[in-house]
Design a protein around this nucleic acid. Sequence first.
DNA 1: TTACTTGCAAAGGCTTTGCAATTGA
DNA 2: TCAATTGCAAAGCCTTTGCAAGTAA
Lengths: 154, 154
Amino acid sequence: MRDAAEIQHRMTLFQQRCAELGLANTHQRQVIFRTLAESTSHPTPEEVYRRVRKKIPSISLGTVYRNIKILVQKGLLKEVAVHHEPLRLDPNLSDHHHLVCRRCKSVADIASEDVEPVRLKAALPAGFQVERCEVVAMGLCAACAMKLKQNRSH
Amino acid sequence: MRDAAEIQHRMTLFQQRCAELGLANTHQRQVIFRTLAESTSHPTPEEVYRRVRKKIPSISLGTVYRNIKILVQKGLLKEVAVHHEPLRLDPNLSDHHHLVCRRCKSVADIASEDVEPVRLKAALPAGFQVERCEVVAMGLCAACAMKLKQNRSH
DNA sequence: TTACTTGCAAAGGCTTTGCAATTGA
DNA sequence: TCAATTGCAAAGCCTTTGCAAGTAA
């Protein structure tokens, strides 16, 4: 849970952006976004649904999914991981990092030795024991960069 | 595709580990593992199935999934992302990093300023444009560390 | 009024599972 | 022989989608 002023600020920005994007200001949408803005726990859609139902018992799970999808597309929310969807497998058991193309979703390895050790400057949440750090470098692979350049479409 | 000596080495190790773990040395299992060991592209189960069928046309998708699951559990394969499964949402739009508990899967944010910039020492695959780097620190949160200590399991 | 949204329910992907038959040790 | 494994098909999650009714602008 974040502090009230912060939430209020986010809600104001949210309404502005919705207006700019032509998204209607529905009660359901407001509550879904507020629920996410208030949380710090990176909830799943199901969890969002559970929380939102306390305020709007009649809301449907479909509406929650639909709004999440729209808001992610419009850049008002983010997804935590790059890959949820189908499982990706890796036969390389040693610690290493990944390079992911945001367009075609291809994944390449980066050897552990090719990245300077990650250093955290600040204290972690009390008692968290880090076992390993993985770097995920996101961007565009050469093939996708070329395709995007050609179509000029995002 | 990796070089033949490397593959051969991995296959030998694989058979040893299977024997140690009491996993039968079936043709299907061999081919599934070899297919993954040969690949550098982090395929999905569906893709593994597609490739394995060229060698064993009668294999079922279920067998592919079952073997992948067993091999991941036994530590002979890894999954690329930490979270595939249900989508996780993040209202924090600024660049930042994540701390993930490997046991309860909780996710916490690490502010961008709290991590030294990631530096790559080696050249990336030709033409890859990195747009941003995310650090995923994996480990055990305080609560899970305590629970594990108590049950001495895992 | 009109475009956007909602709830509902059905459909779709991805993955797991029960079962009888088969195979490896 | 006996436990482990397979193919098959059904079932289960998570997510998307078509539709008619309802709502915001």
